[in-house]
Design a protein around this nucleic acid. Structure first.
Lengths: 224, 224
DNA sequence: ACCTGAACACCGTTCAAGT
DNA sequence: ACCTGAACACCGTTCAAGT
């Protein structure tokens, strides 16, 4: 559990003369970890690398954090804040879902190693993520949904987003049939036809799939 | 690249008197690795643990496999074989997609650590997986789909499956609001209403989401 | 309360040496 | 061709000792 600094009304009380060492706190650790990841990807995120970036010994980190997993959670909290859930306040449900999903997927695509974590992590300790869910749920409620159907609908769209974000990190030629070339007539024809459109196949899949699942959930034709 | 033993027409030629040591090959390594995983999960899958299970030293594995990642791929090939893609030969597209997705998701839910790998791994080296795609593509083709739309549709459904399989491994109380309880009226009402149905929320999300995306893609109402 | 430095218990992988 | 045993270059984490 990361320690937080409560905003204090006055200047912080300190014992006279004793200059406190530059503090390491959950916020700084999370931000530094994210910087490390943005620079060199998740392979760069090691406890010793993070400690060095903070000018501290690796074991010092364990005064503020229980495990490396907790550092992943700090990153997750910062990153999830970039998902735009305000759209549920300004757009009708269908349009809001489409826009929300788009930012959500883009955010996660840049942090693929977080996806298996986020999918499984209780949101209990992530107040901002809970705020997001409240906004999404409010969008469904205002659209007149039955309460019991709302959570499964959210989870369904989220699952699609998680999978699509993973897919977005796949190499472009992921479907290359290799030595099986020539033996898969229908699949290879479909591949060629898709390639001929010049569109990125992951992006095309995300957009048609998103429209499909939203339309399917809301009971309107996918093409509208 | 795992070495394969080509089926030989006659009995294998051996130098007389020299009994060959019991062979280690890609097939045996993969099956043993899977056994290890089925027993104790993916944390049990270490090179030294696998070597011990095979009665061999860890370094011996590198005569047959280039890296641990390649062992993950061996497991993936075996596991993917449990996905039932024969349904595309015996059911109309909608029904086949629903059945295929169900087995696919169940198979992956038992092997969550494979999901990020499979999502990104070129299928070039997985002939059985390519055969699956051919069957799926044939199902779309026979249903009269435009060739250029087939691959994005497959990828979209697959993304939903990947995300749902990840979600299936999440703890039941993943949405517990914790200290934010009481501050999220719409979301908490939705949670309570969903819980009151007595259904597993991940399963409900998968089934409604699957129907929605398939219906949305095929342009028919989700409730049909 | 918070930090350091050494140590621990692992990882995956490499490589010379054997047969 | 394939295996062993030792070694390497890391991991995350613990803990006594310092201030």
């Amino acid at each position: 559990m990361p320690k937080e600094i409560a905003p204090s009304p006055g200047p912080p009380r300190r014992r006279a003369g004793r200059p406190r060492s530059l503090v390491l706190d959950g916020d700084l650790i999370g931000r530094t970890a994210l910087k490390l990841v943005n620079d060199g990807g998740y392979t760069k995120l090691t406890m010793s690398g993070l400690a060095k970036a903070l000018g501290v010994s690796p074991s010092a980190l364990y005064n503020h954090v229980g495990s490396k997993q907790e550092i992943m959670q700090l990153i997750q909290e910062i990153v999830m804040d970039n998902v735009d859930s305000s759209v549920f306040e300004s757009f009708p449900l269908t349009e809001a879902l489409l826009r929300w999903a788009e930012t959500y997927r883009d955010v996660l695509a840049g942090h693929a190693p977080l996806i298996p974590l986020i999918a499984v992590l209780p949101v209990t300790g992530s107040p901002r993520t809970l705020d997001m869910y409240e906004k999404v749920a409010t969008g469904f409620t205002k659209a007149g949904w039955h309460q019991a159907d709302i959570v499964p609908a959210i989870v369904a769209v989220e699952s699609f987003i998680f999978g699509s974000a993973l897919d977005a990190t796949a190499p472009l030629d992921i479907f290359n049939p290799g030595k099986k070339a020539g033996q898969l007539p229908n699949f290879e024809d479909a591949l060629d036809a898709q390639r001929a459109t010049g569109r990125n196949s992951a992006d095309a899949a995300f957009h048609t799939g998103l429209r499909a699942i939203v339309a399917g959930l809301l009971g309107t034709p996918a093409t509208s």
